[in-house]
Design a protein around this nucleic acid. Structure first.
Lengths: 188, 188
DNA sequence: CGTGCCATGTAAAGCGTTACATGATTCA
DNA sequence: TGAATCATGTAACGCTTTACATGGCACG
């Protein structure tokens, strides 16, 4: 359900093809919503059927036709109504925490190594998001004030911030976990 | 798939009925894995069919029979093998961030109010987890050293910590977002 | 000559949510 | 009398993932 609105939210800013939307999701939105191209294409067809978006088929030579989607007034209205509804937190499903709970079944170094690996993954994501922060929000120097951004960009910036802080928090937890586990069992 | 292992991980510590597992998930595990009773009961039947768990039907008077599940050697082996596999981060789907992206369609106070509401939700979760930290891990006074905990409890403690830090980070983001949005658009 | 980009799709299986169902017991 | 707890389930639906499919063009 929410995928439909995520697509509408992107289309509310700019008309795009499904292909472009997938790229846009991968680039800008993946830190808080991920979707496969199969999902996107299907959802767009459903949205077109409900007349929440329009399709314009743009013939191209030498490559497949492009379906250009644009939001309709009906779609914009439904999107605005949906934004007004309260939203519940995501339900988390953290595989690594389950592994931790079963961690007493395997040697400690295996667990430590897995946490270190995860630390790298999250540090990597953090770096990518930080790069996006620089490029998209503050192209003329990072320590600029987010409050000075135009309202629309500020909203987007806050989504990015959420991702940045989330990844940073993960890295910190990994450090804490490694330190906590390295302690000897025999310490009193 | 991972739900099966989450159940096995719980059963590896203590044999339980499906009903008890649901309560255990609600209490201890919900900060990193949630599951409905329908899911749990079904998965347990599937696990029993694969002989990863045993079932013992305990007749009771005045109330429904209890199916007591216990992990088998085969189940423990599969669980240990699974723990050795690297695990990918959860894919996040944050509805609130999508609403933020479409936030220019509705009045600013609506967005601010929704963020404030979410702040309350996460602060609440944080408080509950903090209570659990006190009760389960440090019953004799909080500022005790987590490194002094026995290894198994330390693993559990780290899962709880992850939840606590996650909720705390959410509250901080909400504060940051409110402050950032409250700034006038006309500021130069 | 292979890899990757452009651009879209079908089909099946797996996983999760929602609604509905039963029936006795205990507590306010 | 009504609500909560104990204890387990079925059925339908919807969302997500995985696998498979097409076909030309550009680049090295």
């Amino acid at each position: 359900m929410a995928l439909a609105y995520a697509l509408l939210a992107a289309l509310a800013r700019e008309s795009m093809s499904g292909y472009d939307l997938v790229k846009c999701f991968d680039r800008e939105i993946s830190c808080y919503w991920i979707a496969s191209h199969q999902q996107v294409y299907k959802e767009l067809r459903d949205l077109a059927q409900k007349a929440w978006v329009n399709v314009e088929i743009i013939p191209q030579q030498g490559r497949p036709n492009k379906n250009l989607y644009s939001i309709t007034d009906l779609g914009r209205q439904h999107l605005a109504d949906w934004v007004l509804e309260p939203s519940e937190p995501t339900s988390i499903r953290e595989t690594l925490m389950v592994k931790l709970k079963a961690g007493f079944l395997v040697p400690k170094p295996v667990i430590l190594q897995e946490i270190e690996r995860r630390r790298g993954v999250h540090l990597n994501s953090w770096n990518e998001l930080k790069t996006m922060e620089r490029e998209f929000c503050f192209p003329e120097g990072v320590p600029s004030d987010p409050k000075a951004l135009p309202y629309g960009e500020r909203l987007h910036y806050l989504g990015l911030q959420r991702g940045i802080r989330y990844e940073a928090e993960w890295v910190e937890w990994c450090d804490f976990a490694i330190e906590t586990l390295q302690a000897d069992e025999e310490v009193l």
